[in-house]
Every structure is written in structure tokens, then in C-alpha cells.
Amino acid sequence: MATSAAAKAGQTGKRIEVSIKKAIGPGDDKVHTWPHLVRAEFICALLVLFGMIVWALMLDAPLEEPANTSRTPNPSKAPWYFLGLQEMLVFFDPWHAGVVLPSFIIIGLMVIPYIDINPKGNGYYCFRDRKWELLTFIFGFHILWVSLIIIGTLLRGPGWNWFWPWEKWDPHRVEALTSVNLPYLLGLRDYFWSAVFGGVLVVIFFVVGTIAMYGWVVWLKGEEFMERWGMTRFFITSFLFLNMVAVLIKMLMRHMFNIKYVMETPWINI
């Protein structure tokens, strides 16, 4: 209660300050929308339209043979903006890559304004005031999303095998499917105990990850920040963040150690 009252008082204080500034004048840097903004928009629109027309004159939209449900092309690719998700299918089962991860991405984007309580950096470009926010966003957007789209678009050929741009797309290339599950790699042979072991690993990842993140945030920002941030915000943030990190870990495990699943059960695999 006390904190929210204080916050309110702070807000009112700010409002009064702003209105005083408005009253005394030089704080206002406004210009007329006509012509200043309308002119910029108009010129921008003209240039973009011109660019679009040139693009449309030079490059034709693709049209392949008529649809044929009995002839599946190899590879079949989703539209390019979904190829990051299709690439995820290499590392996760369809329910995970196609349903859970996109939902987390959308929810994660939506909660950003509510979990970020840093008042600095509102309305201007800066790096130092919001280092961690920026690094997280750039990691998620540029490293995970955009680079996976580039891989899916340019480097995946028939059979969703990896082809460098200078390699010919050979539909008969055989890649040995040698990937194994983590429990198997560690010597477990029993289905039941493998599943238990994998499940425990997943739980441990989230528990230890959450604790580590708690410690990290306190170390970085101090107890006082953690109190202001609150447990709800902390848990939402750490859960989403750990999921993002898990994607990277799973990708590295697959590419470096050929590990398929951490946990395998008859219903879901992770």
C-alpha cells in the first residue's frame, strides 16, 4: 500500500512538474504537423511507392505448376517468415516447435511492457540505461528468430538436410540418423527410468535456472530492486527467459553432441 501511494505521489509530482514546464514555455518543442510531419510522410510514401513499383516491374511473383496433392515437393517449405519455426522442428517435436514456442513468443512479446519496470530509456535511443533488456531482445529477435529464418531459407535442402550455398541440392543424399537421447547416451537403457531421469533433468533445469536467475538479478541490481520488481514479474520473466535459453541449449546439444531428446515418454518428448 505504502509503495503504491508513494508511486502515485511521484506520478502526480511529475504531472505537476510537466504542466509547470508547459506553462513557462521553453520546455515545449512542438512544431506544426502541417507541413513538418505531413511533408516527411509524403516524401517517404512517394519513395517507397516508387521502390515498390520498380520491384514489381523487375521481379515477378512466383507461380509454379498447378496444385497437386499427390506430389509432395522435397523440400516442402512454409512461407519464409515461418521458417524459423520449421527449423525448430529439427530440435523439438511439432507440438513444441509449432504450438508451445510460438505461444511463448507471442505471450513473451506481450508481457514485455509489464515486466520491464526500468523507467529509464523511455522515448530515446540508449544502450547503457537498458543493457540487459536490449541484449535479451536482440538475442531473441536477431540471433534466434532471424538467423533461424536465414538457415531455413538458404541452407536447408531436400530432406531438410543442411546444404551450403555452393553445394548442389542432391535429393538422394543420405544422412545417417545417428542422434540418440541424452539418457541413452549416459548409459540408461530402461524406458521407464530413462523417462524419469529425463523428467527430473528438465525439472532441475527450471528450478536451478530460476534460483540462479534470482541470484544473478540480486547480484546485479540489489535486493531493493528485487523487492520493487516483485515475485510475479520475476517468475514470468525467468520462466520465459529460461525457455529461450533452453532452445539455444537444445540446439547446441543437437549440433555438437547429436542428442535428440532430453526426456522421452510415450506422450511427449522434450
Binding site: 507461380l63 509454379e64 496444385a67 516442402s76 517449405k77 520449421q86
Partner: peptide, 13 residues
């Protein structure tokens, strides 16, 4: 467009 690109991309997607 109802071509090969269309139905397979939508199927996969």
C-alpha cells in the same frame, strides 16, 4: 494461387 508452392507451404505451415 493454388499452385504447388501454395498448397505445400500451407500444408507445412
Amino acid at each position: 494461387p493454388w499452385d504447388q508452392l501454395a498448397i505445400w507451404a500451407v500444408t507445412v505451415g
